[in-house]
Amino acid sequence: MTEVRLPFTDRTEAGRLLAERLDPPPGAPILVLALPRGGVPVGVEVARRLDAPLDVLVTRKIGFPGQPELGVGAIAEGGEPVFDRTLLDRLGLTREELTGTVAAERAELARRVEAYRGDRPPPDVAGRQVAVVDDGLATGGTARAALRAVRAGGPAGLVLAVPVGAAETVRGLAGEADEVVVLAVPEMFYAVGQWYRHFDQLTDDDVLAGLAAVSRTAP
């Protein structure tokens, strides 16, 4: 097993290392669902190594009104909004006050689903082994929303796989998946990007190129 040294060179290297740690049950076909945009290059390497189909699971952060970088929740395609109730209470904010924000994020989520998948329906996860892949876990809001959306579809098994994550977040997500695979849980975690030498902002075209690079795209 290759030793993990931080920072990773880029998401591609991180994906290759992550793929080495995944060990799906023998004979159980696995579906890789990457969270765009950053999770796609990681998911490409995982899908290649496991000879698995790859698709995206689109998520959107629900930001605090007027301060959108502060995530108070998240939503995933096929799922309902998942809120950080502790943070909402601390901010004195109700779900009803976020109705407009949630509607805007639903619209952007729908736009991205159409851009990435077109008319193709989302993959059926019922009875399948599913690996949800991202490039890292900071607060874990989008990962939680993604896992709950997949779980509602009745998979046979559900794994969350990421190269790096904040310790508290990793612990908090343990109950959302059957297994959480994380290569590194460094101290003093501020942001996912600090653990990559190259952490470029990706575009929709980058996501489409990543999906096209894997021959077995999920039907």
Rank of each mutant, 00 (worst) to 15 (best):
Asp55Arg: 12
Val56Arg: 02
Val56Thr: 13
Val56Gly: 02
Val56His: 02
Leu57Arg: 12
Leu57Pro: 12
Val58Gln: 01
Val58Ser: 00
Val58Asn: 04
Val58Lys: 07
Thr59Met: 00
Thr59Ile: 01
Thr59Val: 13
Thr59Leu: 01
Thr59Gln: 10
Arg60Ser: 00
Arg60Pro: 08
Arg60Gly: 00
Arg60Trp: 01
Arg60Phe: 06
Arg60Val: 03
Arg60Asp: 02
Lys61Ser: 11
Lys61Thr: 11
Ile62Lys: 08
Ile62Phe: 04
Ile62Leu: 14
Ile62Glu: 05
Gly63Pro: 03
Gly63Tyr: 02
Gly63Ser: 07
Phe64His: 15
Pro65Gly: 13
Pro65Ile: 12
Gly66Gln: 04
Glu69Thr: 05
Glu69Lys: 09
Leu70His: 12
Leu70Gly: 11
Leu70Glu: 12
Gly71Met: 06
Gly71Glu: 08
Gly71Phe: 06
Gly71Val: 04
Val72Leu: 12
Val72Met: 09
Val72Phe: 09
Val72Lys: 03
Gly73Tyr: 02
Gly73Leu: 09
Ala74Ser: 02
Ala74Trp: 06
Ala74Asp: 11
Ala74Tyr: 07
Ala74Val: 02
Ile75Glu: 02
Ala76Ile: 12
Glu77Val: 06
Glu77Cys: 07
Glu77Tyr: 06
Glu77Ile: 00
Glu77Phe: 01
Gly78Phe: 04
Gly78His: 08
Gly78Asp: 04
Gly79Asp: 02
Gly79Asn: 01
Gly79Lys: 04
Gly79Cys: 02
Glu80Phe: 13
Glu80Trp: 13
Pro81Gly: 00
Pro81Ser: 05
Val82Leu: 00
Val82Phe: 03
Asp84Thr: 13
Arg85Asp: 15
Arg85His: 14
Arg85Tyr: 13
Arg85Lys: 14
Thr86Lys: 13
Leu87Met: 05
Leu87Lys: 06
Leu87Tyr: 01
Leu88Ile: 09
Leu88Lys: 06
Leu88Glu: 07
Asp89Glu: 15
Asp89Trp: 03
Asp89Tyr: 09
Arg90His: 15
Arg90Asp: 15
Arg90Glu: 15
Leu91Gly: 06
Leu91Arg: 04
Gly92Glu: 09
Gly92His: 05
Leu93Val: 15
Leu93Glu: 13
Thr94Ser: 15
Thr94Phe: 11
Arg95Ala: 14
Arg95Cys: 12
Arg95Glu: 15
Glu96Val: 14
Glu97Ala: 15
Leu98Glu: 06
Leu98Arg: 05
Leu98Gln: 07
Gly100Leu: 10
Gly100Val: 03
Gly100His: 05
Gly100Met: 06
Thr101Arg: 11
Thr101His: 05
Val102Asn: 03
Val102Gln: 01
Val102Met: 09
Ala103Val: 03
Ala103His: 06
Ala104Arg: 08
Ala104Leu: 11
Ala104Met: 00
Ala104Ser: 01
Glu105Phe: 02
Arg106Lys: 08
Arg106Phe: 04
Arg106Gly: 08
Arg106Pro: 01
Arg106Asp: 00
Ala107Val: 08
Ala107Glu: 10
Ala107Ser: 07
Glu108Gln: 00
Glu108Thr: 06
Glu108Met: 06
Leu109Asn: 09
Leu109Ser: 01
Leu109Ile: 04
